[in-house]
Each structure stands twice: as structure tokens, then as C-alpha cells.
Design a protein around this nucleic acid. Sequence first.
DNA 1: AAATAAGGTAAAAACGCTTGCAATTATCTT
DNA 2: AAGATAATTGCAAGCGTTTTTACCTTATTT
Lengths: 333, 333
Amino acid sequence: MDKQTITIYDVAREAAVSMATVSRVVNGNPNVKPATRKKVLEVIDRLDYRPNAVARGLASKKTTTVGVIIPDVTNIYFSSLARGIDDVATMYKYNIILANSDQNGQKEVQVLNTLLAKQVDGIIFMGNQITDELRAELKRSRTPVVLSGSVDPTGELGSVNIDYVAAVMESITDLINNGNKRIAFVSGSMDEPINGEYRLKGYKMALEKAGIKFDKELIFETDYSYRAGETLWPAIASSHATAAFVGDDELAVGVLNGARDAGLRVPEDFEIITSNDSKLTEIVRPKLSSITQPLYDLGAVSMRLLTKLMDKEEVSEKTILLPYGLIKRSSTK
Amino acid sequence: MDKQTITIYDVAREAAVSMATVSRVVNGNPNVKPATRKKVLEVIDRLDYRPNAVARGLASKKTTTVGVIIPDVTNIYFSSLARGIDDVATMYKYNIILANSDQNGQKEVQVLNTLLAKQVDGIIFMGNQITDELRAELKRSRTPVVLSGSVDPTGELGSVNIDYVAAVMESITDLINNGNKRIAFVSGSMDEPINGEYRLKGYKMALEKAGIKFDKELIFETDYSYRAGETLWPAIASSHATAAFVGDDELAVGVLNGARDAGLRVPEDFEIITSNDSKLTEIVRPKLSSITQPLYDLGAVSMRLLTKLMDKEEVSEKTILLPYGLIKRSSTK
DNA sequence: AAATAAGGTAAAAACGCTTGCAATTATCTT
DNA sequence: AAGATAATTGCAAGCGTTTTTACCTTATTT
């Protein structure tokens, strides 16, 4: 009645060998006589035996599963990373347990705990703010962790990103060269180091180099969502900014539509440059100029780094910077 | 040196009870004297004991994990469903193993096998084409399965969708009422029942009711991607269609931009109605009119149905239809 | 106060596999 | 051909829980 499963024991009996031998052939252990291997393989095939990964996990203390903590799969930036992660994971025979956190510290800690309970071999974390509690748990767990597309100012954890400071500086400089003096800086929470430290620093450096005075009236802090951008428009408009750097594509599209729906022409009246070069940038009109980041690769490389960490391989540098670029489409002059 | 773990045995010793008792309190079994429970709980807290889910899984034959097979997380339609799935899963204490399949029959079978090896308690499948091989494996596994946002013409498997026939018929009728006689039908592969059977049927019914003759020159079969839509435009243009029904939002945006970049005005010169009501529809200009589907809910309800199946609860109807609607935005007159 | 009924708790057998170690068999060496 | 070495294979002890069975306390009943 219930799902009668074939165990390694059944195979051993049918093949007239010990469980140990079956285990060896299943695991590709070379210490098996070819003839024996063949015999076992035949039985496995005939019985349609499928090793129980849970039992395996218990015995070997490896689950070939990694946990992925993601703010929201629905956000194209993160899902792009996730895709890269999954592909590389598959390549290395790992599976992914995906869990949405909404960037909520509480949830993050909770999710982390259930992942650890499930004995994942490693963790990939996305999210730009790591609370002290989370960091403590992460450390205590002794499980390899890598931050994907997220920054760790302390450098304790493995992470894969681009050089945000330089990328932002370059894009702001570009905007300045186009004649803009008042450039809005629109991003998510400044509490996130990626915004409050890295991007903002790039922004300030570019201004300084051009001899423009920093004006905090031009700093806008909001959510990473389309709606947030749309809503924010009036405020940006009244700041007399003539251009904006935006830290997220959905957000940027919101700003873009806010501006256009208010009657402005982009880029003639207002220029926009965004940060993630996701599909969205090419889907909207005008197409958005953007910092380019290899999203898929960020995920892929993160996972690859994690496999090294899990295998206890020596890694020379735990913080990996991937190349970025700047692509001018039609939202800038 | 290595991660020394606290086991149930340690807790039992410290609390001076048996493992069995610790197990009972951990699992909320009521047969424990309050005083004992308290004592055990204190030790658990002090030792920071975290039950090993793998061992649990082996002993109880339940992993509280479900497998989710998704064509591509990067597609907003699917990721929206996935979000609903994950939220409900979390609610019921399950985790999700997410695996991308690219709608590739081979990969699907392979992924399914590794999920089953991992002893998932259930499976949620997204993808509109179920090969015979896959169906056979699914059946043989005796693991509960539900199709999310995907159709099963045979009705053997649990599934959650909307009434595609009716929805498409309604939208085509709307287009007809706007004066269109030549309406393009743009979708993914016609081999997928959702397109070749359901949607197409709705399309034909609407035409018939209006006395318009079906013209297969107006049927366009392509990929579910932005690029595919853009590329397809010239063909649509030369078919002399004055409107299009499109089966996927990304695809629809491609068609929209193809048309506009070619100089047409939407909706004045060409009308478009799309199918999934994802974020994209509101992000582009003009905003896309669409069939509305509760994407998040489709996922959520799928997962809820799966929990019932996993608990062996009686479910009156394995095929659940959620309500759909039609929202007119600016891509139709 | 004796008999009976409930709780509570412990003991130990699974769960299905990996793995170190020992035993066996095959292959060399000289 | 005997001893030595290497290649195979089997044994059995875990891995950390759950769960069944049985036993032992208490409380309840009469």
C-alpha cells in the first residue's frame, strides 16, 4: 500500500554482495572489481533502485544541498542571481533550498535556523544588510557562507560583487559631463552599506572631483519597488534635480514613468541612469542607461566560490569583484 | 575542531530524562508532564540544541520539504507563482527545493529524480508540457504532485489554474467589439495544451461567435521571451493583423515595443491584450490590457492543495480554477 | 485500603546509508 | 612455489531521530 521502497539491502541481496559493495559502486568508489560493478549496476537498474539521499546525508554528514536566502524572488535582480546560482549548483550536483526573507532581519534569522537544521552544506545570502544577530548566527554555525551581489564591509564573509564605488562614480561623472549640476541619488535604505557607504561614496567622489557641492536635499531613500519610484517623483521634481542615479532597476522604471507621466521628456528634460542592467532596462522606453553588472555571473561565481569553501579548498581571496561597465541607452544624453 | 553538534542525547543526559522524552517535547507531544517539559526546554535552550532535520527525516520518513520545478525563475510569471508557493510553504513549515527546468523534458525528468531521491514530501510542477516519460515517473513515484499555473488535460494530477478558454474568449471578443477583424494569436508552442488546446479554443470560439473565419496565418508560435516578441513583429505586421492576443507578458512587451519601434501607435493602430497581469503590464507604456490572474494566489493555492494531498486529506476536486478577469489599460481602445 | 485506570517515562528497535577495519582473494616476486 | 603485496569485499558500528512497547508511578474509584 504505502510506497514500498527498494533499499540498498535489496540490491545487495539480489546481486549477492554486501551493502558495502553496493554503496561503493553507487558512490563511484574505484575499489570494486569491474565484473562486480557491472553485476551490481544491472541489479540497480532492474530494481530501479534510487539511493535515499536522507539516509545518505545522515551517514555521510553531507546533504549536497545549499540554502539560498533571497529578499524576493519576484525581483528580477535577485532572480537573475538565483538563476546563476542554481545552474552552477546543478553542475556540481547540489540542490538549492530557496527562502524569501523580504530583507527582514527576523525572518532572516529564522530562515537561517531552519536551513541549518536541515544541515545544508553551505549558504548563499542575498540582502544588503546583515544584522549583528544574523552575523553572529552565521559565524557560530561554522557553515560556509557567501554573499551574492551583497556587500560585507567587514570582509569576514565570502562575497561576490562589483566595485560599487567606482561604478557609481563613473556614472555620476558621466551625468556631470552631460551638464547636470543637480543630480538626485535615489536608493534603498541608507542603512544598507551598499547604499550608505559604497554608492554614496562614489556619488560624493564624483561631485567633489567636479567641484560640485554635496546637497543632502538630493538624496532620496526609499524601497526597491516600482511603486516607490513612481510615488517619489514629485519629491524629486521639487528638488530641481535634472538627472538621477538610481540604485535599482524597478525603482528606476518607477522614476522614469513618474517623470514621463508628469510630462517630462527623458532624456531631454531629465536624465536617468540605473544600476543593475536587468531585462527591465531594455523593456521600457526610453531604454535605460545603466551600470552593467553580470547578474547571472554574480550568482554563478558565488556558487562556485561556495563549492570551494565547502570542499575546504584554499581560496586566495574571499571577496571577489567582477567587472562592471556603463551602457548608454536612451535615458541619458 | 569540526562542528561539534549537540544531539538529542546530550539534552537527555543533561536533563536526566530519556531521548524519547526529549523527542516528545520537541515534537509537542502532549504526553509529558509540564514540569518535565519545562526542564527539558531549559536544557534545550541552554545547550542551544537544534534538532537534526536529516535524522528526523530518516526516522519519520517526512522531510518537510517540497520540490518545485520551475521553467525559469527569471520569468516574472513563474517567479510570482513561486513567491506564493514559498509563502504558504513557510506557513505550513515546509521548505522549498527550487529547480529550473527550462521546460526541457530531459532536465525535468532528471530534476524530478533528484527531488525524489531527496525524499521530498511533495512536488509542485510548473511547465505546460508534460512528456509521457515525465508523467509516468510522476505516477510511479506515488508522491503528491500539483501543477501550478499549468494545465493537465487528463485531470489525473492536482492542478490550479484559471479557465483559460473562457478568459481568452472574453478577451478576443473584446478585441472584436473594438472593431478588429484580423486578430493575431501569439503564444508559446502549440504543443503545450495550454496554448494548442485551451487558449486556441477560446480564440476560435470567439471568432465563431462573431462570424469571423479562422485564418491560420494569424497564429504565431514562438518562445516566451521579450526578444522573441520583438523579433516576431515584422511577421505580425505583414499578416495585416490589427490587434493581437499574446500568451505571455514578456512576449507581449516584445510585440508592443516591436510595433512602436516600427512607428505604430498603440492602441490607435494596433491593439494588444496580454495574459498574465504581471508587474510588467504596468511598467511599460502604454500599459498593457490583460487577462488578470491572481498569480501569487495561484502559487499559494497550489501549495495549500499540496499540503492537503500530503496529509492525505480528502480533497473534493483536484483541479482548482481561480477567478480571472480582464483589465483594460492603455493597449486597447 | 485494594483494585483499576490513567498518565508518564524509559528502553530499544528501526530508518537506509557510509566507512574504517579486518578478512579474503588475486597477483606478483624471486 | 612460497611468501609478500595489492586488490576486493564483507562486517558492523555508527549517523541522530522517531516510535512502539512495556513498565512504573500516581491518581481515582468504590
